[in-house]
Amino acid sequence: MTDNHSTNFSGVNGEIGSAVSTAHVRVTVRLFAMGRELVGANFVELAVPAGCSLEFIKRTLTERFPALKPWMPRMLFAADNQYLGSDHRFFADRELLCFPPASGG
């Protein structure tokens, strides 16, 4: 979590955020439609550094599931019924939805 800002600057090599990077949060990514079929699972669980961005989560997913790579730029992410931007950051365990652009109707 982020309640130890004061220690962020004392990490190895003076790296800002190194204290934070030792803490991890669990992100459950629920997959739908083509994403679900490409991964072959309804959801995946990721342990990611606390404070990481959605962009980081996208890269992690692509590394673990290369089949997602061509599609990732167009994938949308949501949590608590809201769409998320790539700069959204994760400070606590969270459930995410990952899906392609809507094609209903």
Partner: peptide, 29 residues
């Protein structure tokens, strides 16, 4: 609804194949 509601359609064709519809993208699985 077509823009923002998270619903997806897969077309099943008579010759036996199927494809997720991806509006605005030619790539298809």
């Amino acid at each position: 609804l077509k823009r923002v509601v998270p619903i997806w359609k897969k077309e099943h064709y008579q010759e036996g194949s199927a494809r997720w519809v991806d509006p605005g993208c030619e790539m298809a699985s």
